[in-house]
């Protein structure tokens, strides 16, 4: 028990330091010896940090919603297909799908940039969700594993009742893999919320930028207002924290039932 408390303390320390620094005057952030409780609680750091963050926040929310909903839709369809439907070349297609995950993104960055530029997608949000949604490798794999764990009798009963393939998928099978959907959704949300590289490369206009970029922009070339940056960072982690507390039960179940537990 004591070990767990100590470990929890160690893991929580950076988070607590961030919150503490976010409430301090700038001079106190790096004071030596370090202090944990601010001499003055500077709540105005939050108003200063939040000033101007809203557009970045809304862009991040929009992209997270598009990524999560779109990816869940396509990944569940593909996962069901690979798990339950029989078609020519299924195994080869699945192997090819997994193989695409092995190619480092830097390899195709410039061709991808040229392609997006050609179709007018640079400085739009499309590159930040359309490719993710249409190539959900990990989500497809995880949901395929989950669908494979659902008893076939359910599908056979639906077939006897006259359900179509899509009807069986949508009304019978999908509700059976809710925990896996929650897990894929949570992981997709985190990937989208924390994505720095995509917005960095494909966006130019500040009005389209997302929260990770906003945080980096707090870091000045020659000096950084660390207290304001920590306040902004604290605000940034609130949505993922809420999501985690709401979905943690499904998240653990989903990872477990898909056979990916360690």
């Amino acid at each position: 028990m004591i070990t767990l408390i100590v470990l929890a303390g160690v893991f929580a320390m950076p988070l607590l330091w961030m919150v503490s620094a976010s409430l301090k005057p700038e001079n106190e952030v790096l004071a030596s010896p370090p202090t944990f409780i601010p001499s003055v609680f500077q709540w105005e750091n939050y108003t200063a940090a939040a000033d101007g963050l809203l557009p970045f926040f809304l862009n991040s929310v929009k992209l997270a919603v598009l990524n999560v909903t779109g990816l869940l839709f396509f990944a569940s369809l593909a996962g069901y297909g690979f798990a339950r439907l029989n078609f020519v070349g299924k195994n080869i297609a699945f192997a090819l799908l997994l193989a695409t995950a092995m190619i480092p993104s830097m390899v195709y960055l410039i061709p991808q940039y040229m392609l997006f530029r050609e179709i007018g997608w640079i400085d739009t949000h499309f590159p930040l969700w359309v490719p993710n949604v249409l190539t959900p490798v990990f989500g497809t794999f995880l949901l395929r594993q989950s669908f494979r764990g659902v008893p076939r009798e359910l599908e056979e009963a639906a077939k006897l009742d006259g359900a179509s393939i899509f009807g069986t998928f949508w009304r019978i099978m999908l509700p059976q893999v809710k925990p896996a959907l929650a897990a894929v959704g949570a992981l997709t949300f985190m990937a989208s919320w924390n994505d720095l590289f995509g917005p960095l490369i494909f966006l130019n206009s500040t009005r389209l930028q997302t929260m990770p970029i906003a945080l980096v922009l707090f870091q000045g070339e020659f000096f950084t207002q660390t207290n304001l940056m920590m306040a902004a960072a604290t605000l940034t982690i609130i949505p993922p924290l809420i999501l985690f507390f709401l979905a943690q039960r499904y998240f653990v179940q989903g990872i477990t039932m898909s056979g990916l537990k360690g």
Partner: peptide
Amino acid sequence: GAALIGAPLAGCGGGAGG
């Protein structure tokens, strides 16, 4: 759902084109 429907209309349109 609302965002999915509305977003392509509202914000994916671009800026200066890079």
